[in-house]
Design a protein around this nucleic acid. Structure first.
Lengths: 220, 220, 220, 220
DNA sequence: CATGAATGAGTATTCATTCAT
DNA sequence: AATGAATGAATACTCATTCAT
């Protein structure tokens, strides 16, 4: 029986406590500075048990990370489905709003992603970053391709460049909800919902002017 | 005699070795996980000596950080001066190209900045981030304000939002030269110079369409 | 579970070895110069384990110190009770004999007290000295007060001065059993029991002449 | 040329600064915790020079200690000569007052002596303690012997015991001017001169009652 | 002779991991 | 299966001593 299988057999209550504590720990301290000791103390579970469930600290992190990726992936899939009939820029707007709402619900998960992105010092980093590619690779690229096919986007644009730009702006917009300094005085961090909606609106208008086809597709 | 004065008296050769090693170490591991032991081993310098030069690990980091900020600041000042008579978007183009070239010359310095941004747990973080604000606060904001005054930018735009967007796109564009994953398949990472020039051109065109005034200011 | 609780669960054999080694170390070197490394080496116990048991070096010292104070306090309480019906000077004699016998049984404990007294540079010194005051404050002062009330002591004496003198002489007499030099050639250090009894007798006679009431109280 | 000879050739001004700083350092921190680094910094003299003058930290301490012993010895010799014609208890009184005044003038020297007495952990301790014996051995013993020969002291007393007792009480009385805790609430520490004189008087009266011959020698 | 840079073994403390119970 | 005691290599930092300048 593999290590994580052992974990899966635990009572849901216990599993959730472990997951919540570990997410919190990794979000707060990153991988190396996270302390299994502390997680054991906070969950009230024996250190030895954690190692039985996950083998190593890395195993625990893998599990938490996969868990987080799965959450995000589910969220994206849902947004994709729910907005399938919308105009390209409406979908971007919905995506951003969904992103903000996801971050507010799971504040630590985005932080783990950011920690991962800029901490090179742990061995399995590349493997993890592959999994994160999903945002632009699985989500954004098809969305842009469809947008161009539908005539929502200017036909002369380079798909890669559009994806890159959208990824940059959207990611930064979301980062600004976790990392105060990054909001460039725009007051995004923990802004009230109506203010966020306004900001998203402005941002999407700006994107539409830069990327949108001259005459709107008329749909919607 | 203060600690760093002692360092300044060393032979240039030795100083450079220490600086290079320390930059590499902090870029790779961030502040907390960076190891003075390792730096001593890698430079071949006694641990005690490093502490004589810089007092503490924090002192060493401060020195390296100030060194980096100074490099960046000088670079920005030079670009600003050299492009004073250019149109707003030309200045952005020049800035990006200068940024890319700076990163290629000092590959680890941008990484240190990124580490700082997303590692929240060390004591003097805020103090250091203040120093970094200079990019958007001292550099970008005045540039945008002048751009609007000159009629290069659309007059109805919100300065904060423009700064935020430029900062996001430019920062991400530069990040993509340090963090392979972030280039969104655009192939920016270590791309040959001509390719970079093309990418910068496309990006600036896109920005001009989104932000530029209907009729160009005529200057240049 | 607190740190010291962990220690208490160890096998008695191991606990004793640790306590004995630590008492020896602190007696020999005082607090600052005592080395946890050395204690680990001498006990054959991993350094990490000692820190699991006591948290910090200070924690270890606190434990040892409280242990010592408890031993002394128990001893004093016992002597007090057993001599309750004796004449004042008999009680002093009994106290001295009990002190000598205690020091012979626990040779390092008195040394720790002396180290504390004259090493001023560690942080929690005052807190610990408060605990030691018990000898003169809790023990000697009431004893002298009762002695005066019973008419064993000359009524014109100042209580403070008597306590001071008794404390000085008795403390020095006991010190002379730890610190060879202090016996002033009187040969007290590790003297055979019968010689100690003689010395104590002479000392008490001297005290009685200096402090005793002209006509003995008649009791006993 | 020996190490200390090198020191002796320095300008008096420099020598005094070094001696004063070293006395202060050893009094404050004891031998092991004293830092040559700190002394070098405080004197403004290069660390290397201190080692040239004294060879090792131990050599420096030896020098300081001998210096201190010489000061004390000179003081005792002077008191001895000046009180040669006094009654025994008057000499004790004079000695105590001289001791208090010496401690007030050289507050750190007595502290060094106390540190030495109770710190066993340095190699040359016994050698140093031999030198301190002088107080009871060279000073007090002859004084007591003369006192008995002159009939100031009761003839049935044991010289060693008298020396021991006097040493204990007088030493403790002086300690109480350095170590607040030891004054047993008698308020000796930094007491005003007139109060000290009163305390000394009471103490000597007490000693006279305990040790003095029934009928005073009539001398003086 | 004076200097102070260089050294390296020393300090307390942490923590992922193992393993006997 | 669960536990938590034991481990030891790692961390930042200090300091007496040496030695080339």
């Amino acid at each position: 029986m593999t290590a994580t299988e052992r974990f899966q057999r635990l009572k849901p209550e216990k599993k959730e406590k472990i997951v919540a504590t570990a997410i919190d720990e990794f979000a707060r301290y990153g991988f190396r500075q996270a302390s299994v000791n502390r997680m054991a103390r906070l969950t009230g579970i024996a250190k030895g048990s954690l190692f039985q469930y996950f083998g190593t600290k890395e195993g625990l992190f893998r599990f938490i990370f996969d868990h987080a990726v799965e959450l995000i992936r589910r969220n994206l899939r849902r947004v994709k489905a729910e907005t399938a009939d919308q105009d390209f820029f409406e979908r971007i707007r919905s995506s951003l709003l969904a992103g903000v709402s996801f971050i507010r619900k799971h504040p630590h998960i985005y932080q783990i992603y950011l920690k991962m992105l800029f901490q090179e010092d742990f061995p399995f980093r590349d493997e993890f970053l592959q999994k994160i590619r999903l945002f632009s690779a699985e989500y954004l690229t098809p969305l842009v391709e469809k947008g161009m096919a539908d005539g929502d986007l200017r036909p002369d644009l380079d798909v890669h460049l559009v994806v890159f730009t959208l990824d940059a702006v959207m990611d930064r917009f979301l980062q600004a909800h976790c990392v105060p300094f990054l909001d460039g005085n725009a007051g995004l961090f923990q802004a009230p919902p109506e203010r966020v909606e306004k900001q998203v609106g402005d941002l999407v208008d700006f994107l539409r002017r830069g990327l949108g086809a001259e005459q709107p597709s008329g749909r919607r």
